[in-house]
Structure formats: structure tokens, C-alpha cells
Write a protein that binds this DNA or RNA. Structure first.
Lengths: 180, 180
DNA sequence: GAGTACATGTAATTAGTTACATGATTGA
DNA sequence: TCAATCATGTAACTAATTACATGTACTC
């Protein structure tokens, strides 16, 4: 499905970037809550996208031999990206979740053992929820930015990430209630 | 991390199974909402688990040459599974979500185009939510089974799946509200 | 006899992670 | 001068999907 391709085209479509910038973007609070890639996957993909005519790059020489490459999107790349963006696809099969797998098999644990796991997961998801909610308040004052701005996309995914963590915490709390 | 290994050990720990039974289990409503594997991944993994002494199997000959293999867990396999089950691990990095990726880049769409996508996703997630909620009501009467039963594990993951879909729908509805 | 569910495997490819490997720039 | 950050790449491996490939049992 070449999802990384579109994740990268979308970033470079916003503004010219280096591979390193792309890696940094995937570590950012908002983006990291629904996408991620290591540099070892990014650099080969960038090379491929140039070969396919989706991206161009300018080289800036650093020191003796190091090359810094600034990538820009080509008209073909922009078209490909916009076509993908408009695509109304079926929802994905639900993602694998290792803690839900453990929960499914929890009959093989004592109540105390399972409760310990539930509480640990709950604390971690609460921390993640608080971390994301704090950013939402600080950066956006809990209010959606204007339509047509880049910030609105950032806001919506952040809002979705907070909701997702709240929902996970609510589920864990229901499970805890059964065992307490 | 060998997660498929533990998913399989957990199933065979419940009762002896064939590879085909395992494949079927991964297609079941409850399990499919947090785990999945194709038979092309299952059969090689079963072979590996036998080599590692985690599983044994008895062969039943069908027709001329077809073998039906019924797998049982070994004491070593059960120990390995229980050790894994008790393991309190850090929550995973959030899974990739292609629709959230599109949302992140939605500034490049017109309001109408994006609204169309939002509504389509919303309908699909509502259908999934209703499908799961119906099972929860029909099979469990919306009430958790007794502690220590296999059914409680089934119930908890199903409840979690309903909550997850409800939360996704709530998020999509909030986004729709911005664009309408 | 046809179709569906049962039943098991391999091959090829794509996606993703961890480790290996190198070098430049900036600021304390 | 040391550490952190900037900057780019490959190799080896694990995980997962799609396609190829075959054969059995039961029911209409």
C-alpha cells in the first residue's frame, strides 16, 4: 500500500525537507500518535521516490564529503499525493494489541497478578492522555484553529489521540472494577 | 517479540487445536478485534514451536496423503506462555492509522472532499460498533461473566472493542462538526 | 457433479526493526 | 575537548501479506 510513501510526500508537500527533518517530524508529539518510521526506512524510500519522479533534491556539501539533501515535491508527486488523499477507503482491520491479547488469556492468571497488570497499563495510558491533553491545551487552548489551516490537521489528530487514550483508560478502569 | 508465538500458545493452552482451528479462531468476532494472522504465517510458526519443544502434535491421516495435525501444548510451552502472560510491559507506540494520516494532511482537500471522507469513515465505524455491541448483548447480556472463566476474557476484549469504536465515532463526529 | 468447508504447506514480496557504520557542527 | 545534535547511509533480520499449490469430506 506504500503508506510511508504518502506520509513522506505529505510532509515534503508542506515544505522542502531533509531526511533528517522527516525523521524528526515522525518523532513529534502530534505525528507520533498515529505514524512513525525509522531513518533506516526513510532514506531508502526517499531514494525510491526520487527514482520514481515524485521528489527532487538539492545537495548542500558539508565539510569534506558529507551531503545534506533538501527534498522538494515534483508536480507528479503532488498529483500522486492529492489522489491518495482523496481516496475513500474501507476502514482497516483492527490493529494488534498485545495487552488485549493478554486480557483474552487472563483466566490463566490469578486475580492479583492480572489486577497488577491492569493497574500498570492504566497508569501508563493516563500519563499519555495527560501528556497529550496538556499539549492540546497549551498549543491550541482546547479550541480548533480555523478551517483551511495546517494547524487544524494538527489539532484534529491531537484531539483524536487524547480521545483514544481516554477511551483506553475507561476500558481498563471497567476491567479493574471487575477484579477489585 | 514473537507475539504470534504467544497468541498460538494461548489458544492451544485452552484446548488442543489444528492449524486450521487456529486460523478460524483468528477470524472470530472477539479475537479479530485485536489479533489476526494468515494461515501462511501460522503453519510455519507451528512447525517452529514443535522444534522448540513448546508444542507436540498427533497426526491423523485423511485420504491418501493428507495429514491433519492436532497440536497440544507441552509443559515447557505452558511455562513459557505463563511467563509471557505475567509480563508487565511498557505500553506500545501508538499504531499507525491511515485515516489519521489523511486527517493530518486534510488542509490540502476542500471542505466538501474531506467531509465526504469523514462521513464515510463514520458510517463504517458505527457499523462495526453496532456489530460488536450486538454480540456483547446477545452473548453476554451486557453483563461480565464470573471471574476465573474463559468467558470473562472474551467479554473484556469485546467490551474494549465496542468502547474503541465508540471513541473513534465520537472523534469523527467532532471533526464533522467543525466542517459542517 | 459442483460447491463449500476442511486441511496444509511454500514462495515471493513488502514493511518494519535493530544493528552497523560514518562524518560534521555547535555549544558548554 | 566532550557531548549533543545534525546528517546519511547499508545490512541483517523479523513480521506480515499475497499468491501459488494441493488434496479431502460433506452436502445439495
Amino acid at each position: 500500500m506504500r503508506n510511508l510513501k504518502y506520509a513522506i510526500l505529505g510532509l515534503v508537500n508542506r515544505e522542502p525537507m531533509t531526511g533528517y527533518d522527516i525523521k524528526k517530524a515522525f518523532e513529534d508529539r502530534a505525528l507520533t500518535s498515529f505514524w512513525h518510521a525509522e531513518h533506516s526506512q526513510i532514506y531508502p524510500e526517499l531514494k525510491k521516490l526520487v527514482e520514481e519522479g515524485m521528489l527532487d533534491f538539492d545537495t548542500d556539501i558539508r565539510g569534506e564529503k558529507m551531503e545534506k539533501k533538501l527534498y522538494t515535491i515534483t508536480p507528479a508527486g503532488r498529483k500522486e499525493f492529492l489522489d491518495w488523499l482523496k481516496d475513500d477507503v474501507a476502514i482497516e482491520r483492527t490493529h494488534k494489541d498485545i495487552f488485549r491479547l493478554r486480557t483474552f488469556y487472563s483466566e490463566s492468571l490469578t486475580d492479583e497478578e492480572f489486577l497488577k497488570l491492569l493497574k500498570s497499563q492504566c497508569v501508563q495510558h493516563m500519563e499519555k492522555r495527560d501528556f497529550l491533553a496538556e499539549i492540546k491545551t497549551r498549543v491550541f487552548n482546547d479550541t480548533p484553529p480555523k478551517k483551511g489551516t495546517r494547524e487544524l490537521g494538527d489539532y484534529m489528530v491531537l484531539d483524536g489521540a487524547v480521545l483514544r487514550e481516554e477511551s483506553y483508560v475507561a476500558w481498563l478502569e471497567r476491567c479493574i472494577k471487575i477484579f477489585e
